[in-house]
Amino acid sequence: MAYFYQVPALVNLCSQYLQSIAREDNVCEILDLALQYDNVGLRQAACDYIDQNATIIIETDSFVHVSKLCLEYILKADTFHVDEKTILRRAIEWAKLYQGNDSLNMDEDIRFNITVKHFRNTIGNAFQYIRLGAMSFAEFSECAGSTLDAEEIKDILLFTNICSTDEFHQNRLPKKKILELKNGISSWTAHSFSRSSESMYKITVKKNLICEGIKFSKLSLSATWGNPGYGEPNLDFSVNITIEITRTGLNFSFKTAMQALSLHTIKFESPVNLKASKDPYTLVVKIEFQPNPLNITINANQAGVGSATVEHAEVEWNNQFSILHQIHFSNMSNRELKDKERKCGDERLI
């Protein structure tokens, strides 16, 4: 009704409510609604939930009851991190149901022997997002041998052989990944004439990624008075932190108590897109003290020099003082990217 009467405020309330009740057994239905009504916010929230709980959701009853469009949208994501054997098995179950064979309510022995006719045509565009190349022949045979007839299997294998590698993305990826920097010891002393320090990290990205945030190192403090005789130094003071990543426009600043910075996690207000490039991005973390008469030494449990890698990203640093413990990345689902690719492909066919 909210869409019918075009009441944006009511549409937003409905979207927020559906997001609040999302569970493993209903989130596929919520995604179906989001696609039907082209609600971008609800669609993204449902996709994030599905990707984060993929191994559970694929086995739910609601998964095999989604529309053909929704099935395609779920499977196309590089971040739908389920083994391909399970995906093929559940796609076949979906096709059985779509063809009117309610095999889910049958005995196991009977369900095992039901065949699916024209499987590739039945699931439509979703078929190209099943990464058959990630499966062994034995795994494919176990899933398809008893449910697809010989002609259908032959058709699938021939179709796969003539497809370009661009049409089949072989590997799915976990939604989130954490890069941990090498442990060690680095330190910096802030004197009255030197009240700020920068830690710099070169990030080389081999596949489009999102940088979501960082985690600071475990820090320990000590301080002495610039002039002796003032008694025990007070370590309860604040610092200004600025975080920048070149070529992204990120300039994130905050103020915090120095002692609260140890092992503190920062999530950026907006995810930072890092595009694959041979030229590294530079992540700069600047720490600045307000003027005071203390000489402050900060020790970090991170090596001043080193490198670390996660899949598709490498970080190198050479700092006197290295303040970061982790950099948080996430993989792009590429669902929207593939939509654009398909539109371009459709235009070429016209």
Score class of each variant (00 low, 15 high):
F127E: 09
N301W: 01
K202M: 05
K275Y: 13
W94N: 02
T204A: 10
I185D: 08
F237R: 10
T86A: 13
F80G: 01
H312L: 02
A303C: 14
M332N: 11
Q16M: 08
E72N: 11
F4D: 08
L235V: 05
F254K: 06
T309Y: 03
V272E: 01
Q302S: 15
W317N: 07
A276E: 13
K340G: 04
D107G: 15
V310H: 04
L71F: 10
E336G: 00
I114E: 03
N240F: 03
N53W: 07
S330R: 14
C344G: 13
A308V: 02
M135F: 04
V64R: 14
N273K: 08
D32N: 13
Q290M: 08
A2Q: 08
S20N: 12
I130D: 11
L294V: 07
C163T: 08
A300M: 09
T115F: 02
N26M: 03
Q19M: 13
P291C: 03
N171V: 08
H169S: 12
P293R: 07
T147R: 15
H118W: 02
L274V: 04
I203G: 00
F252I: 00
A150E: 15
E288Y: 00
L337F: 12
S222Y: 00
V239C: 03
I323T: 08
R111D: 04
E142R: 10
T246P: 05
M1A: 15
F119P: 04
E347I: 12
A150S: 13
L219E: 01
K278T: 12
K218F: 09
I21E: 14
L88V: 13
F289G: 00
L235Y: 06
N113M: 11
H191W: 03
D32H: 07
N113D: 08
A276N: 06
I178D: 10
E232N: 14
L349S: 13
V285H: 02
L75T: 05
K182A: 12
E269G: 07
R120W: 02
E347P: 00
D279V: 14
L263H: 11
H312C: 14
Y281W: 05
V11S: 12
Y37R: 12
I245Y: 02
